[in-house]
Design a protein around this nucleic acid. Structure first.
Lengths: 343, 343
DNA sequence: ATTAGCACTCCTTGGTGCAGAGTGCTAAAC
DNA sequence: GTTTAGCACTCTGCACCAAGGAGTGCTAAT
């Protein structure tokens, strides 16, 4: 079906998409012939456009408006037409300038990355913190806040820190707490959180530990801490989408903000991106999230070693500068990967 | 000047404000007499309203609209007219249900608190994390990520955790790192971060430490970590203000969102609230932030012991249900104070 | 001091009429 | 057979106007 498109149709489709990306106005046959040196008359273009509409690549808001690319058109554009630009030297510098790890915690680095993405793309930046369940434990620490209230700090290999306050049902002496810490570090270091969960259960049933009150206690406490935390999401540059003319009406805007405020849906969507390595693009309805019509998502995974550990990207209108944004997301993901490498 | 207001005028002003809070429409003389059993004719009310306008309590958008309370009117209302309600039993339950500390880190607790404030008030909730500079250090930990990259974890008395990644200019052995940790904990525990800063400088000039490479190194590293972090702000429920009719136009909305996205201004404003203990109310222009016209801020400080350590509150239109929101903010601040007490 | 009455002002809503942009079709040109 | 010029038609956006409604301010009567 896509093969039906001859070279000329492709060129015209591309011209329409690129024009629409710039102007955000339905584009008519005249406009195309004026802005592109095709040596074709408007009438011819009209015929081609009519065909393209038939095939589902274009839609007309109403009879006498120009035409607008459909999600299908963008998909085709991204897959076949688009010549991905390289990140320019100045963009690279800008990106690196805004992502510095030294003297910060991982959280701020990721937030800054998200801000950078939004700033540079003029849309929204999104970064999902490394999912902790897959993280490898480097160290566990207990800090006593009061007799029974204990602060547990988990440090992952990547430098991500997670902490929780838990309540013990009895007082624990500082000495005991120390012994527990050592015991648990020996037992759990180097395992992923997922592995740790089952390891704890295993160990709890172990004869030796069952009768050692202290160890039993330690296991019980650590079990409280490794509950599944939902990974943090840094969504920055919300205001940018207020400048997008497609979303200028207050109702639509409200809908979008509501969808992103309650982050569940976004989490699900981004988790889907985790599965596929590298660049991932959802165009409009492809995301299967109803509020995401006219919204596209460009993501890439970042990794330590061979494992993808998180996702970052840009959220904008389907009418987005793909040629510019895709390489930026790609480059940023590589950069973050490198930053998080512990070496 | 305020004494000029006789009982009747006050009643009418109160009626206008409360009507306007509910309807968001300029209120006319007819409406007042209909909704309130004053036994006064519209004409009389008109005369009073005219006086009130003269005195700066009311303004008319245009000749033939009703009248709208000014910031001055709200201020008078809040100070003199308002009978603050108690938090209802069910509100109390709701608030407590949504603020649980067990099994979470302080950050999530504060975020949840902010969400709760926005949910219950229908406006935006804001919570400023305890400012770290005033916090008392409970413990410092170093975790080696790689030879030179070190994760520093600071735990405050309140259970707040701050961590940073720093880069050392030479490799440090695990043993040395341990010794450094012990040394620093002995030196710095129980001091506030502010005190720690000067203590480090002091110690660096000390004869003993100057010639002990390890200690000198430790001081140098710790100095990197106690740089002034800007306190985190949890601003939740942004969408709620999209439902406020005053802000329904896209330009105004953009302005507001932009003002809150760049959090500096908000930080300054909230810091001002830190200075005064307890409830603090900024009405519209009182905040001296230009984008905050028609926006009010109700805050209260929360504390451990005698010290205010943070601020929380609600941001909404000046046309806000003060009678309901003020006690909610007050109650929440007390609750958070109690939660953070380490005992 | 209060109120009824009335003229006046201003916003809102709905209708009308054009100008502009774009299409689809047909017939002519290449 | 493809391309193009020409033309009728459609739809939006905008300006303009008129009528209706809400509310005020003033004056004169109670």
């Amino acid at each position: 079906m896509l093969d039906d498109l001859n070279e000329r149709s492709k060129q015209i489709l591309e011209a329409i998409i690129e024009d629409y990306i710039i102007t955000a106005e339905p584009v008519g046959s005249r406009t195309i012939t004026r802005r592109h040196p095709f040596a074709l008359s408007p009438a011819t273009v009209r015929n081609v456009m009519s065909d393209l509409e038939e095939m589902g690549f274009l839609a007309s808001p109403h009879t006498s408006a120009g035409r607008v690319p459909t999600d299908k058109a963008y998909r085709f554009y991204v897959d076949s037409l688009l010549a991905v630009r390289q990140v320019s030297r100045s963009e690279r510098d800008e990106i690196r300038r805004r992502c510095r790890i030294n003297g910060h915690d991982i959280g701020s680095v990721l937030r800054d990355t998200s801000k950078m993405l939004s700033y540079i793309s003029h849309y929204m930046g999104v970064v999902v913190a490394p999912r902790f369940a897959a993280a490898v434990l480097r160290q566990i620490e207990f800090v006593q806040l009061s007799g029974r209230r204990i602060l547990v700090i988990l440090v992952a290999q990547s430098g991500t820190v997670q902490n929780k306050i838990i309540e013990s049902d009895e007082d624990i002496s500082a000495d005991d707490l120390n012994r527990m810490t050592n015991y648990l570090n020996g037992l759990l270091q180097g395992l992923t959180i997922a592995q740790i969960k089952s390891r704890i259960v295993e160990e709890m049933e172990n004869e030796k530990t069952r009768y050692d009150r202290l160890m039993a206690k330690a296991l019980e406490l650590s079990q409280q801490t490794v509950g599944d935390a939902d990974s943090e999401i840094f969504l920055e540059g919300r205001v940018n989408i207020m400048d997008v003319p497609e979303f200028a009406d207050i109702g639509r805007m409200k809908e979008i903000f509501r969808a992103f405020e309650e982050k569940n849906q976004l989490v699900n969507l981004l988790n889907r991106c985790m599965d596929a390595d590298g660049i991932n693009i959802f165009i409009g309805s492809e995301s299967r999230v109803s509020q995401m019509s006219d919204i596209s998502l460009i993501t890439s995974t970042y990794r330590t070693g061979r494992n993808s550990i998180g996702v970052l990207g840009v959220i904008g209108p389907t009418r987005m500068g793909y040629a510019k944004v895709i390489p930026i997301v790609d480059y940023t993901a590589r950069l973050v990967s490198r930053l998080l490498e512990s070496e």
